[in-house]
Each structure stands twice: as structure tokens, then as C-alpha cells.
Nucleic acid binder design. Structure first.
Lengths: 156, 156
DNA sequence: TTATAACATTTCGTATGCGAAACATTTTTA
DNA sequence: TAAAAATGTTTCGCATACGAAATGTTATAA
């Protein structure tokens, strides 16, 4: 059986990851609530604004959610007139997602730099030394690669 | 409006966190499926095994889930005879959770070091230089503190 | 050219996951 | 001592969240 000290080490390594996702969710919820959508919807709107015409499979990679999950979120956003869903004429399997005018407005209101709690807290977080942030990301990606069993590919 | 480069930087910093949680979930799912429970149930069983008698509010902190969420997960685990739920005699608001014999057995089977994908991949990940892991955790905690607006407390 | 495989999305069933509200209990305040 | 506040848990309503299966479409193999 894996020893308790080993389990504690695992715990210690993985807790910051769980904690950060939770904090992000809560900060995003503050902005989302203010404009009457959910935090996941806000995240999706933001991602579509940054990648107009994106399909579900790509969006899935960008936001790290299953495509089945995204299908439902997108459905609700389309029904609320915040997103437009089109089929690609080149490949009818593929969706092309776009923000609607009211979706863009909603996004701009949520992420108004003077009101957005998420953006303000992120700005503070990103004031950390750039070298520290780069180091953290580098080690995280190495850690991830090992967990995935793809560590060879990350050795650069 | 927050500039695109700033949004991309935010994205770059937060993606590893989302990715790691997803990978952890998927690895835990492999172990959980093998013994017929869900990944969250497995995580809760593990935490209760390491903290016998723990209550929901404490458990909430340990696993970073809302107590309302945990209430449901515990309910299902009790119904499956994998956990025992008792009320504290000192404070009747407080639960005291314990693994049942079959819960312990299920946990040991899931986290059998020779079968557990999560433990094996974690072992590989933890073979990274200890200094790297410490550095990652330190910077993550500083990042978290800033996001929470409690960065003063982390300055040591 | 046809059959098979792969891809992208949707649907389904079940388990989360959250915050707010409700309830019971304990602690603190007046 | 009684009222108010705080704590711990449960319930509620709704939105995820996932993997598996189904569906339609495109690409590849035979």
C-alpha cells in the first residue's frame, strides 16, 4: 500500500491545483452573476470572442471541458441569443460559433476592467516576477507531461 | 477593455491548472471504474481514511468541494455501505465520518500500488527534482494568495 | 465505386457542483 | 436568562460534467 507520507506528498502537490480552480470559479462567478449568466457560460463567451468561428472540438481543448458538456452550454447560450451557431459549409460536421451582438455586450459588461473582480485579481497575480510565473508554468507542464505519460515529449 | 495579450497571459497561466485537474480526474476515474465507484467517491473515501472522524466542514477544506456537494456524495457512500456517518456526542451539529470495512477494502483495491494508474503516474511525476516541485508549490501558493487578495499573509 | 473507419456533434443517464435557504444546535451577546 | 449570532449539515433548484452511444458527415481503404 502506498505509504501515508507518499499520499501526503501527492495531496500537497495537487491541492494548489484544486484550490486555484475553485478560486477562479468563484471570481468568475462574481462577474457572471452581475450580468446574469453562469461562470462557465462567461468562460465560453470569452473563448468564442477570442476565437471567432471555433468549433466544439477546438473549444473543448481551449477550456478543458468535454464536448458533451460544451454542447449543452452552447445550446443554452444560443437559446439566450448570446451565441450564434452555424454549420461550416466546408464540413457540415463542424460548428462555427460566433458571439451575437448581445453576447459581446454581455461579455464586455462582465469583463469591464473597472468592475471585473476576476480581471483585477488576475492583474495583481500577474504582477509577480515574470520569471517566477515562467518557472511555475514550465514545471507545471513537466509535471503534467509525466502524469500523462508523455514526459519524453516535453524535454526541450 | 483588457487587451488581448493580457487575456492570453491569463489564459496561459490558468490552463495548466485546468489541465491538471482534468488529468487527475481522468486518472482517478480509471481506478474508480475498476472498483465500481466514481472518482469523487474515491477521493472522499481516501480523505476519510486519512482523517477518521472528520466532519463535512473539514472535509470540504481538504477536498475543495462545497459542503452541499459533499453532503450528497457522502449520502451515496453511506447508502452503498462504504462510509459510516455518525453524529458527534459533543456537538450534535457535527458529523463523524468513518470508513466501513467494505469501504476500506474498496479503497485498498482501487489504490493497490500495482494496479492504480493514478498512483503510478503520480510516482513518476514526483520523481521530478524535489527543488522543482517545491518551487512550483511555492509560486502557486503566492499566485493563489494574490488571487484571493490575501497576498500579505503569504509573504514570508 | 463501395465499404469501413474516423470525425464532430448531439443525446442520454447519472453524478456532481454550486449558492441560497432551511433546520437544528451551539456559542456569544445583551 | 433570553435573544441574537454563528456553526454544521441538509435540501432545493438549476447548471454543469462525464463517458457511452447514437447520428450524420467526411476521409480512407479495399
Amino acid at each position: 500500500m502506498t505509504t501515508l507520507p507518499e499520499l501526503e506528498k501527492i495531496k500537497r502537490c495537487t491541492m494548489p491545483f484544486r484550490e486555484l480552480n475553485r478560486v477562479l470559479f468563484q471570481l468568475r462567478t462574481l462577474d457572471a452573476d452581475r450580468v446574469g449568466i453562469t461562470p462557465q457560460q462567461l468562460m465560453v463567451l470569452n473563448e468564442v470572442r477570442n476565437n471567432p468561428g471555433i468549433g466544439l472540438d477546438q473549444l473543448s481543448e481551449h477550456v478543458q471541458l468535454a464536448s458533451s458538456t460544451l454542447s449543452g452550454i452552447v445550446d443554452r447560450l444560443v437559446k439566450s441569443d448570446l451565441l450564434r451557431r452555424e454549420r461550416s459549409t466546408r464540413d457540415r460536421r463542424q460548428l462555427e460559433l460566433h458571439l451575437s451582438p448581445s453576447g459581446l455586450e454581455k461579455l464586455q459588461e462582465a469583463y469591464d476592467p473597472e468592475k471585473s473582480v476576476l480581471l483585477q485579481r488576475m492583474a495583481v497575480a500577474l504582477e509577480m516576477p515574470a520569471q517566477d510565473i515562467e518557472t511555475m508554468i514550465r514545471i507545471q507542464n513537466q509535471f503534467l507531461a509525466r502524469l500523462r505519460g508523455t514526459e519524453e515529449l516535453e524535454r526541450t
